[in-house]
Design a binder for these strands. Structure first.
Lengths: 269, 269
DNA sequence: ATTGGAGCTTGATTTGAATCAACTGCCGAT
DNA sequence: ATCGGCAGTTGATTCAAATCAAGCTCCAAT
């Protein structure tokens, strides 16, 4: 469970930004002065840190992690081919990772939400295999990989955690492979909506009403579909009453049915 | 470069099994009595071990690795959901890993050739996320993960190697994602042929003539295509003279052109 | 020797999503 | 205030691959 011991986090969560319907830049307005908050005070630590880590060990990790200033929409964290030196954790906002195929098209390989770790694909060749950009105002923690490697050798639970993070990414990508190779456009869109819903829930945000951080184009690219198809499916899902969507604001009015669609139990009309 | 210091390996490579056109069960007939060969004597070590490891350290790793008896075609190494305890390296033969989708269909997530390591997707949940079966007679090395984790803490280059193996798998899966989402059936098949070719070359086998270890059905499943489509593409590539194929025996008669197809520079007819 | 089946191929037809095209709303720059 | 353009929607048409169907070949079991 998540204990919101941090004042700033609680404020951002509760009062939020009244100008938008769903929480967007968590901890931005009220506390961007506070972006250097430590791991032990971060309410996302339960997602991005190993649970087993002792307070003293967290302090060691804390000393390694670099917290940068907030990123603007469109800012690159790294580019494909850049020398790899760090992995990153999302503190607020959303990022996308993508690579450019031989034929020059962009292929999005993942969206990263607060608490999630990205950049792990760069370890193998010591070069980033993809680029990462902020989809909106965002803040990240930079984790120099050499330093965590060192520290990992002394902290088994940290080593384990990084093995797990990587393995998780593998398992996730393989699920995605199955989706791209077997599922219809409708199943893919439904699955993405549910994935974002679940990841929001993990951060104690609404699982049924949220603002999509990415464009239809990005969704299509990620799911191997064209914008038009994505748009049509949003319309269709709305028409049959499974979702209600106004641009990027989405409400899952019938998550169960959506789940059925994602699993191929049912098709929309 | 690869130094064939091992008598057995050299024999298997040179004389081979005269009953088949291309090398199949490397090191099987002549030396299956020898399947307990150590890492230091294994000619695949340059692929599956970190180069930087000292002789003394290799011995330590050697002591951990368990070498089982040869597997028969169809034998499972582990099943989806099994408790995870080890990762595996392929010694000879080929394996496929696959998971079953929510709708009950099999999705192949990878083929593993000699020297390659598989089973890494099980680390995150401590359960295997996929099943692994032998596609032909095969031998594998079992690497108990807890033990290498421990050893990794003391041998930085070993830790690094495992981080790299995992990262490599991530990068690979992401390339596959891009392929499934952007490439035509023709490009996918061409890419698979080239991938197998390259992996053969790495083991000092022919890059242009080889026996495919998997069925057309498996190829289709892996590439997100039907058998019929795969078959048609093999026929087409043969007709235009880029490959010559007799069932699973394949010769890449024009690898350059195949590369062009895979990269979308050219299409077959 | 015959049967049966798995693996593969080829052809005809269908179909889901891509492509092409047109239009709207909206925001930011001039 | 107007223009330009990006993001999104909707409709008409096309197309690549799936599906359906019918063969074949090879091997293993009877």
């Amino acid at each position: 469970m998540l204990t919101t011991s941090n004042v700033c986090a609680t404020a951002a969560e509760g009062a939020a930004d009244i100008s938008t319907k769903s929480p967007k830049d968590e901890c931005s307005k009220q506390c961007h002065h506070d972006y250097k908050i430590s791991c032990s005070g971060c309410r996302l630590s339960s997602i991005c840190l190993p649970i087993a880590l002792q307070a003293a060990d967290i302090a060691k990790l804390d000393a390694i992690i670099q917290r940068g200033r907030p990123l603007q929409k469109g800012d690159y964290i790294y580019r494909e081919g850049d020398t790899f030196s760090s992995v990153y954790a999302v503190r607020s906002g959303t990022l996308k990772a993508f690579s450019v195929t031989d034929s020059g098209e962009e292929q999005i390989t993942g969206f990263y939400l607060p608490g999630e770790v990205f950049g792990l694909d760069g370890v193998s060749k010591n070069k980033h295999a993809s680029s990462a950009v902020a989809l909106e105002t965002a803040a990240i923690c930079e984790i120099p990989f050499d330093r965590v490697s060192e520290l990992s050798a002394r902290l088994p639970s940290l080593q384990r955690h990084f093995f797990q993070l990587m393995s998780q990414e593998i398992a996730q990508d393989q699920k995605m492979l199955a989706m791209l190779s077997k599922n219809t456009a409708e199943q893919r869109v439904a699955a993405l909506l549910l994935s974002i819903s679940a990841r929001n829930a993990r951060r104690a945000l609404s699982a049924t009403a949220f603002r999509l951080p990415m464009s239809r184009t990005d969704i299509g690219n990620y799911l191997g579909l064209t914008v038009e198809t994505v748009s049509r499916i949003f319309s269709r899902l709305q028409k049959i009453g499974y979702i209600s969507s106004d641009n990027r604001e989405v409400t899952l009015t019938n998550p169960e049915a959506l789940r059925d669609i994602a699993n191929g139990v049912q098709a929309a009309d």
